[in-house]
């Protein structure tokens, strides 16, 4: 993957599709949002490079949240799901060999965390974290349980829709992104103050994974497909070909 061809750095972030730093409907953002203009400059190698992870760090059950925290012979409780998709950059090129980390609540909407106060019970066989590497074409998959919705202190009656948190590296520090995946058909999506920090309905829909019956494992696991796009590199004419990047 090493390349020494000149290129134009990363495509500028379209900040009209990302949540603004301060969105009063999401109260915590009010005191945690920078108020001065960001400093813009063309990216250099400091941002165009990024950490690479060896597949050897990934254990055989790291992408199986049904079992990676469970006692021998046990399994997490809840509707069994498989989540898969392609990680690509804005050109459409799949991003190979890159680390994806996920975390989520259990089927009852409860996180395994000491600051968590929701009354729903912990599942002794569910930890809530997992990770995987993308393959040569940028595809990934993991198994889990459908996370439950949960209430959170913002308004007096705000609920998070079912969601899975994703941490994405890509190949450059400039591509680093954390986002959340939602599930097709969940009525809580459009009522959520965190979802509603996103400025446009179309951008929200980019985070909603459709049910993919063709990818389910019959008599076993439902499947959802979630494609993710990271920032792309600006290309010169001579490197504008799939094998050239």
């Amino acid at each position: 993957m090493a390349d020494d061809k000149p290129h134009g750095g990363y495509i500028q972030r379209d900040r009209d599709r990302h949540p603004p730093a301060c969105h009063p409907g999401y109260k915590t953002s009010v005191t945690r949002s920078p108020q001065k203009a960001l400093l813009s400059f063309p990216s250099s190698l400091s941002e165009e490079s990024g950490p690479v992870f060896s597949p050897s760090i990934i254990g055989p059950r790291d992408n199986d949240l049904l079992h990676n925290f469970a006692a021998d012979g046990e399994s997490a409780i809840g509707p069994r799901i498989l989540v898969y998709g392609q990680l690509r950059e804005q050109s459409g090129r799949g991003l190979p060999d890159t680390l994806i980390e996920v975390w989520q609540a259990n089927a009852g909407g409860r996180y395994r965390h000491q600051k968590e106060t929701y009354l729903a019970p912990l599942d002794p066989n569910f930890g809530g974290c997992g990770r995987c590497m993308t393959d040569a074409r940028g595809y990934y998959e993991f198994r889990s349980v459908m996370p439950g919705p949960y209430p959170w202190p913002n308004g007096v009656n705000d609920w998070r829709p079912s969601h899975i948190h994703f941490s994405l590296f890509g190949q450059a520090f400039a591509q680093r992104l954390i986002t959340q995946m939602y599930f097709e058909g969940d009525p809580l999506i459009w009522k959520c103050p965190i979802v509603n920090t996103i400025p446009s309905r179309q951008a929200v829909e980019d985070l909603i994974a459709p049910l993919d019956l063709n990818a389910t494992i019959p008599m076993d696991t439902l499947a959802y497909r979630f494609d993710i796009t990271l920032r792309g590199r600006r290309q010169t004419y001579f490197e504008n070909r799939p094998e050239g990047m």
């Binding site: 495509i11 965390h113 996103i198």
Partner: peptide
């Protein structure tokens, strides 16, 4: 060109996924 996926906050439990 595809659009970059929109960001969402890491939330209060980012450590579950990133530093379990």
């Amino acid at each position: 060109y595809l659009n970059e996926s929109p960001s969402q906050t890491a939330g209060p439990y980012v450590h579950i996924g990133c530093t379990p």
